[in-house]
Simulated scan of single mutants.
Amino acid sequence: MKGEGRLLAIPGGVDDFREICEGGYYFVDKSELVSDIVNDRSEVFLFTRPRRFGKSLNLSMIDAFFNLEYKGNKWFDGLKVNSHPEVEEHRNAYPVIRLCMKDLVADDVGIEREAGNGRADIIMRRNDPRYPNIVVELKKSRSKTDIFNTMEKEARKALTQIRTREYYRSLKGKTYLYGVCLQNKKAKVLFEEMDL
């Protein structure tokens, strides 16, 4: 990310943190947002910004920092987040599920969030038949023994719950069902596809 004596490109329309880092683009360092998240300890964060103010890039950066999939990357070398040693134990330490909705138009998707009223945790209803609907049911495991089998069972329970309660009954077309079990830094995701 350092210019190393050369002119950096301005990343117009580039919202992928990895691409910015590896592609030699100019980057305004907002990486301290990661330390804000770690130190705040809230369960939910809401980042509001006007259009074109970097929400997708910030989300991509947060994903790149926490996601196990990117373990060993050098993308944060030289950035401000490195001046916060308390965040290091969280670097690439978690399974991350990232659902990006930036290409959706307002009437293209409906999202519901469970509030104890018998709905799935997340339902993304697509009005455009080219794209699938998505139903996600999340479970949390606290098992101390046989963690792998317990997480598998909980993820299967999540898929069964989606089918039994027919969370998809109002959906039409291709629908992806995700049963997810989380425990500490581990995740088990089971997937089914339905044509409704």
Rank of each mutant, 00 (worst) to 15 (best):
E152C: 13
L159P: 15
V109C: 10
K186R: 13
I97L: 15
E69Y: 09
R52T: 06
G116Q: 12
P132S: 15
V96D: 00
Y176V: 10
F45D: 06
R130T: 13
A93K: 06
V135H: 02
G12H: 04
K185A: 13
V34R: 03
K30F: 06
E43D: 08
I123P: 00
V135C: 02
Y25A: 04
Y26W: 13
G173E: 04
L7E: 14
E88K: 10
K55T: 07
K172M: 08
D128C: 13
D77Q: 13
G13E: 08
S35F: 09
E32D: 09
T160S: 15
D146P: 00
I97A: 05
N133Q: 10
R169D: 08
E154D: 15
L182F: 07
A106R: 01
K174C: 03
I10L: 13
F17C: 10
Y131F: 15
E43L: 08
T160H: 11
E86K: 10
K71S: 14
M1G: 09
V180K: 04
I62A: 05
V87A: 03
G116N: 11
C21G: 02
K80V: 11
R49K: 15
F27I: 10
M194L: 11
L68N: 15
K55G: 06
K153L: 15
N73Y: 01
D16K: 06
S60V: 06
P95R: 02
I10F: 14
N67W: 09
T164R: 11
V136K: 02
S35T: 09
R18L: 08
G24D: 06
I20L: 07
T150W: 04
S42G: 07
A120I: 12
M124T: 04
E114H: 11
P95E: 03
A64D: 05
V81Y: 00
E112R: 06
R51W: 00
Y167G: 01
I62T: 08
N67T: 04
Y25W: 05
E32I: 13
L159D: 14
L182C: 06
Y131V: 00
N39R: 06
E152F: 12
Y26D: 14
D15T: 15
I147E: 14
S83D: 11
T175N: 07
D29Q: 08
K71W: 07
H90G: 05
R130Y: 05
D29M: 07
A93D: 07
S143K: 13
I20C: 03
G3N: 13
I20D: 00
T145C: 06
V96E: 01
M194G: 05
N117W: 05
K55H: 11
K188I: 10
V109N: 09
V44Q: 07
L104M: 13
P85I: 02
G179C: 11
R126Y: 06
L177K: 01
L159W: 11
L7W: 07
Y70P: 01
T164H: 09
F45M: 03
D29C: 05
G12N: 05
L104S: 04
S170G: 14
A187T: 06
E19G: 03
T175D: 12
E152G: 03
G23E: 10
